[in-house]
Design a protein around this nucleic acid. Structure first.
Lengths: 209, 209, 209, 209
DNA sequence: AATGAATGAGACTTCATTCAT
DNA sequence: GATGAATGAAGTCTCATTCAT
């Protein structure tokens, strides 16, 4: 055997594995967003991803594992993009605006991901192991939160915000409201557009523009 | 049998039916909030409500009917209380504040109901027959919305709000954000309190106080 | 409704339930003896008992429950017959002989039951909840053991048995050997007859006759 | 490559193969004794033996092959030790006692092997190809059996045993009882010790001491 | 010889709902 | 109106084994 072979084979294996994994997660994410996590069966994921049942179980040994994997992916991806988006901004306000714009974009471009998060908030977040969740959230939260807290303090200092505000509390309250607003819009989706006559990202952007 | 009886029996009968119905809905609402609508089985509702399976089916002939009945009840109840709460207020701002306070109170006092709505938003709202939903929502929305639209217009007139705001759009955007914030807090429940160190209604009230 | 009806209906229900239960246990016992407990599938039990899968699960909600039920039945039945068989005997020796004869008879007449016990000894007894097993065994053991212990003591007194025997120990040792012998013969079944040229009960009876 | 190598390589190869084989059988024997043959999966054997699934299949192409291999090993080993143990004894009685002591020792020192045989008796012996089994048993049985038959005949001659005994029948009956007793004790294992208050080999030895 | 990947067949169990009295 | 029994249709997951390199 040539020396390169002994090094390449594992790499090929790994590549293949990663590709298969992606197929499964892609199929699952789509189905979850469309029909609701609990209503999607393994058989459907199998069918859409094009593998066989037993093959799929070699990648994820229980349905929950798929949900976790998607959650990790979605949050990780969001964290990365948030960091990148706020990188170009100088002031705290600019950074936050960048984050908000990102969330608005996601409403259109990554609606399935936001919808997934909405379902997760509504149905799983309370029951699932706290440590695991905290570890995941740690990846994403700090950036935006830091900036936002700073922004509030600045606002209080320059008099544009009431002096009796608790920066921490306000920050969490607003962040929750923003996340709740975004996820609700993603969940209701086209229903909102029909009833309100506006695309959902416009309804979201109206909050700060 | 005496003539009076023929009038009383239907009444007792009706009372009994109503009581049974309440037992079922009460059990279901509690279970739905605790474990998630899709994860609650008819058998569990049967077990908690204390009836037998086949008896339950005399009241609700499918699981969805129970979900609808709870939705109707929750929204109807909310509408009634909203009307009452805003009745004592004079200005649009006062009326809206009253509505927000009501929503904050519900976070503590009717958490299961809010949680139910959160799940409904996240998982059912998109799929379910639009007409039926619209009819239900019609009961509740107008009040708060009207006031709010008026408030925005006042703000624009007196210069405290930017003149280029679209009152309709702003109204819907804010209403969505408020609902999203409230429901997200209810969904995450005690998890939020542990992480943020504040009771959830305080996080909600921080949005306007 | 006639008064008798309100009393009879439950009785009919109960009778029916009992009959169905028997069908299931009968089918399972037979299959277990033939193919080995672990190799029998629920589908096979369903098929032989003539019910539908979901109906069977209304009677036994897991496979283990069937195994337990059979164990209870077999041991209970054995206890009853042992009591009856030893009832007519006067001396301890006669009582024990009656018990041994019963065990020999079972080798022919209740071979499936003995085979079931053999499998249970070999594969389950070590793992299963001790309390539950002890409770079951309490139903059957005392009789034979008591007699046997007394017999040993008599033998020691009259000099026909060595004085240094520990009656308790001897009793358990012999009882284990007898049970082991019986169950092994039932397990090997016709194989023994072919190889040794004797029916299995004869090989068992040779131990004391 | 030097000429010596072409001779040595096969030898190392063979050694390696033998070692791998031993790892597999060792892992399987342990697992079989602990959880029951039917309940042990190939995956578990793979995991404990430290190989990969597909490697294991290069050594044993089906699960049954592993069971047979262990049976062969256990019986062969027993035969060898029995021959050795009885070698030093002169009388038939001494030889048999040596065999019994060996079986008692095995209860402690080779409990997994005895347990394996117990399961084999209870679950496989009836179904498996007779010829193959007979061939295996031929390795071990003759010794002890011969001695035992002779012993019985001596006993009849000197009047210490009843004259109407059939030596063959008695021999098989007792041998079965002894094997049944030993295997039952191994199967029940610590359960027996807890209930009876004696180590299992003591209960076994009480049969002849 | 070793291994990563794949897989057919099937196991157990659940559940919403209907039927018959 | 209440209830015990029944059940079709699925759902999740497992396992021994094979294939291809």
């Amino acid at each position: 055997m040539p020396a390169t072979n002994s090094a390449q084979t594992p790499r090929t294996y790994h590549l293949h594995r990663e590709r298969q994994r992606r197929r499964i997660l892609g199929a699952a994410e789509k189905l979850f967003a469309e029909h609701g996590i609990d209503r999607v069966t393994m058989a459907e994921i199998v069918s859409v991803s094009g593998l066989r049942t037993s093959t799929l179980y070699q990648y994820f040994s229980r349905k929950d594992d798929i949900v976790w994997a998607i959650l990790e992916e979605v949050l990780g991806d969001l964290a990365a993009r948030a960091k990148e988006a706020s990188g170009g901004a100088n002031t705290a306000l600019a950074k936050i605006t960048a984050l908000l714009e990102l969330m608005a974009d996601d409403l259109i471009k990554n609606q399935t991901k936001v919808r997934f998060l909405a379902q997760f908030d509504a149905m799983y977040a309370r029951d699932w192991p706290a440590e695991r969740l905290l570890k995941l959230e740690a990846q994403i939260s700090p950036e935006g939160f830091q900036y936002f807290g700073r922004l509030i303090r600045e606002g209080i200092d320059d008099g544009s915000l009431r002096a009796d505000l608790d920066p921490e509390l306000t920050m969490h309250a607003v962040m929750n409201a923003v996340a709740g607003a975004q996820r609700r819009l993603a969940s209701l989706g086209s229903r909102v557009e029909l009833e309100y006559g506006h695309p959902i990202d416009k309804l979201f952007r109206a909050l700060w523009r």
